[in-house]
Design a protein around this nucleic acid. Structure first.
Lengths: 235, 235
DNA sequence: GACGGTAATATGCCTAGGCTTATTTGGCAA
DNA sequence: TTGCCAAATAAGCCTAGGCATATTACCGTC
């Protein structure tokens, strides 16, 4: 599995029993002390192994009740939502950024709701297009809260993507993603070089710093080519 | 943040510095020993705090080089890909399962490729529909490898969803998800009760036990209502 | 100046002990 | 019975030490 190391050995041992079906869901895993004895190691070592398995959702632990094998419910899968430029370059394609629009404007009801600011607050709206090998790859529509990021007022975003600009400037504490599918409007289709009505993958992201929304973005990808990919293993 | 406890305190401390912008990306975090001294705790305690932060991608650690604040790249976000029945019930709706088709058949080239079996191998194909409050919610098309799950040959799947049946029967070691968007074909639209051409969210899942693919599924959701949701925080 | 070996250093991991705390079980009482 | 409380138990967390190992920085050599 990985290089040997007592705690890894314990993890691997327990995982192997579960994988083999020898310990079906609900089975009580031996107590930390017992495992420590059978492996000839300290209890803390076993503790770490079991704790990690619990973090990964493979087992469930409760004081006094012990450790039991969890039901293999299809748990959270780490979806990597990548930075466009990196992703494009990782595909071996050349990346190009194009700003379509930029304006400070009073927040519309929906934008205000998503940014968590009163309606009509002045916010910055940026629209841009990301290309891979000169064909449109992602259309981005973004709102930035000027209360949280006043410096954005001075930035044109003509050459640097808001994404990159923001990440370089300030940390964040929470993100939320919402993934859906919609049909391309005429405008969207025009930008992405597809037919109106074609399915597009829509990823919305809100980013917080402590309690305040920094920015809300909507990414649209031509559904025909683009896919989000995930590979997860429990352990 | 959470209930106090020395290692949590250290984590919170470091995280707070990063969040506040006091330690921008690249900053060298104090050595474990020094933090241990300033917090009046053992080095192992600091070690655990920093290790967890490293696991979460907040910092990067290298022997001899020390611990530094990582670039806040929009990392992996845990997307919960839920069990339909649970999800529907969580919305307070009533869940209904309907099997549309079931057949053992020789694997088509594409099915064979995804299951990792030779073309023409006999596989089980199941098609079903999941309802929320009697309106179609998810269309499922699934292939099951009979080599890995011979017991599936005896199961009609008339009353129990393949999902549930499989999870109750065998463990898995790896999953892969691919999320995309497509336009509903006439057939899909008919089943989901939408117009042909409407955007649908497509989630494909492959599940392995050790090296062998157990099953490959394709879930289709009406794009108009359905969304995948994610909330992540680094820490 | 380029190159290579060596020592210093920070993290990685371990041990063996201890106290703390949630939870369950069993027994006692109403 | 039912309800409540106490004891027992298993995990949670901590300490203070130690050895292992990756990596860098430095220094001497060519």
């Amino acid at each position: 599995m990985s290089r040997p190391s007592p705690y890894r050995a314990v993890k691997a041992h327990v995982l192997a029993r579960i994988r083999s079906g020898e310990w079906p869901p609900g089975t009580l895993v031996p107590r930390e002390e017992d495992l420590a004895e059978t492996f000839g190691c300290a209890r803390m070592t076993v503790h770490r192994a079991l704790r990690e398995l619990a973090d990964e959702g493979v087992v469930e632990r409760r004081r006094r009740a012990g450790t039991r094998v969890a039901l293999p419910t299809t748990r959270t899968a780490p979806v990597e939502i990548p930075r466009v430029d990196r992703e494009v370059e990782a595909m071996g394609a050349s990346y190009r950024y194009l700003r379509l629009a930029r304006a400070t404007e009073p927040a519309s009801p929906s934008a205000a709701a998503r940014l968590g600011v009163p309606e009509g607050t002045e916010v910055l709206r940026v629209e841009c297009l990301h290309h891979a090998n000169d064909s449109p790859f992602q259309l981005e529509e973004r709102w930035i809260s000027l209360d949280v990021v006043p410096a954005a007022r001075e930035e044109s975003f003509a050459d640097v993507a808001p994404n990159v600009w923001l990440l370089e400037r300030l940390p964040w504490s929470d993100v939320e993603h919402v993934i859906g599918a919609t049909n391309a409007t005429r405008k969207v289709a025009g930008h992405l070089g597809i037919e109106p009505g074609e399915a597009v993958l829509e990823v919305e992201r809100r980013t917080w710093l402590e309690r305040r929304v920094i920015t809300y973005v909507r990414f649209l990808h031509p559904g025909r080519f683009y896919r989000l990919r995930t590979a997860g293993r429990p352990g």
